[in-house]
Amino acid sequence: QVALSRTQVCGILREELFQGDAFHQSDTHIFIIMGASGDLAKKKIYPTIWWLFRDGLLPENTFIVGYARSRLTVADIRKQSEPFFKATPEEKLKLEDFFARNSYVAGQYDDAASYQRLNSHMNALHLGSQANRLFYLALPPTVYEAVTKNIHESCMSQIGWNRIIVEKPFGRDLQSSDRLSNHISSLFREDQIYRIDHYLGKEMVQNLMVLRFANRIFGPIWNRDNIACVILTFKEPFGTEGRGGYFDEFGIIRDVMQNHLLQMLCLVAMEKPASTNSDDVRDEKVKVLKCISEVQANNVVLGQYVGNPDGEGEATKGYLDDPTVPRGSTTATFAAVVLYVENERWDGVPFILRCGKALNERKAEVRLQFHDVAGDIFHQQCKRNELVIRVQPNEAVYTKMMTKKPGMFFNPEESELDLTYGNRYKNVKLPDAYERLILDVFCGSQMHFVRSDELREAWRIFTPLLHQIELEKPKPIPYIYGSRGPTEADELMKRVGFQYEGTYKWVNPHKL
Results as ranks from 00 to 15, higher is better:
residue 391 V to G: 04
residue 440 D to N: 10
residue 364 A to H: 04
residue 475 K to C: 13
residue 388 V to A: 10
residue 429 K to L: 14
residue 309 P to F: 10
residue 292 I to E: 05
residue 259 N to M: 04
residue 419 L to G: 06
residue 320 L to S: 10
residue 259 N to K: 03
residue 309 P to R: 11
residue 455 L to Y: 03
residue 393 P to F: 02
residue 314 E to Q: 11
residue 379 H to D: 14
residue 479 Y to M: 00
residue 307 G to R: 09
residue 460 R to T: 07
residue 490 D to P: 02
residue 317 K to F: 13
residue 464 P to L: 09
residue 336 A to S: 15
residue 475 K to H: 15
residue 471 L to T: 15
residue 269 A to K: 01
residue 366 V to I: 15
residue 485 G to Y: 02
residue 504 Y to V: 05
residue 338 V to H: 09
residue 444 G to W: 01
residue 489 A to K: 05
residue 493 M to D: 06
residue 270 M to G: 08
residue 398 Y to T: 01
residue 300 V to N: 05
residue 413 E to Y: 08
residue 439 L to T: 13
residue 280 D to G: 07
residue 282 R to Y: 01
residue 336 A to T: 15
residue 365 E to G: 04
residue 444 G to C: 06
residue 373 V to N: 09
residue 423 N to P: 15
residue 350 P to D: 00
residue 392 Q to M: 08
residue 294 E to R: 11
residue 449 F to E: 02
residue 354 R to V: 02
residue 419 L to H: 04
residue 293 S to V: 06
residue 455 L to R: 07
residue 331 T to W: 03
residue 262 L to N: 05
residue 277 N to R: 10
residue 344 E to N: 09
residue 410 F to G: 12
residue 334 F to I: 00
residue 488 E to V: 09
residue 265 L to D: 02
residue 438 I to Q: 04
residue 436 R to Q: 08
residue 283 D to I: 00
residue 478 P to W: 08
residue 293 S to Q: 14
residue 482 G to L: 04
residue 360 N to S: 09
residue 457 E to W: 05
residue 433 A to N: 05
residue 408 M to N: 04
residue 304 Q to R: 08
residue 445 S to E: 13
residue 328 G to D: 15
residue 357 K to S: 02
residue 465 L to K: 04
residue 312 E to Q: 13
residue 478 P to M: 09
residue 449 F to S: 02
residue 455 L to Q: 03
residue 390 R to H: 13
residue 288 V to Y: 03
residue 382 C to R: 11
residue 497 G to M: 05
residue 470 E to D: 11
residue 300 V to K: 09
residue 450 V to R: 02
residue 415 S to H: 04
residue 427 N to R: 07
residue 486 P to E: 01
residue 296 Q to T: 14
residue 375 G to D: 15
residue 454 E to Q: 05
residue 456 R to S: 14
residue 327 R to A: 15
residue 372 D to I: 02
residue 337 V to T: 15
residue 370 F to E: 01
residue 414 E to L: 13
residue 401 M to N: 02
residue 371 H to Y: 07
residue 353 L to Y: 02
residue 320 L to I: 10
residue 314 E to S: 14
residue 403 T to D: 03
residue 504 Y to D: 04
residue 395 E to G: 11
residue 326 P to C: 06
residue 259 N to R: 02
residue 408 M to S: 06
residue 360 N to T: 07
residue 497 G to L: 02
residue 278 S to M: 03
residue 255 D to T: 01
residue 500 Y to P: 01
residue 464 P to Q: 10
residue 412 P to K: 10
residue 286 V to Q: 09
residue 317 K to Y: 14
residue 459 W to P: 00
residue 279 D to F: 05
residue 263 Q to Y: 03
residue 419 L to F: 07
residue 476 P to L: 06
residue 447 M to P: 07
residue 371 H to C: 12
residue 470 E to I: 07
residue 447 M to E: 00
residue 438 I to H: 01
residue 421 Y to T: 03
residue 375 G to T: 15
residue 341 V to M: 10
residue 335 A to T: 08
residue 293 S to A: 11
residue 506 W to D: 04
residue 322 D to L: 05
residue 318 G to S: 11
residue 480 I to N: 12
residue 350 P to L: 00
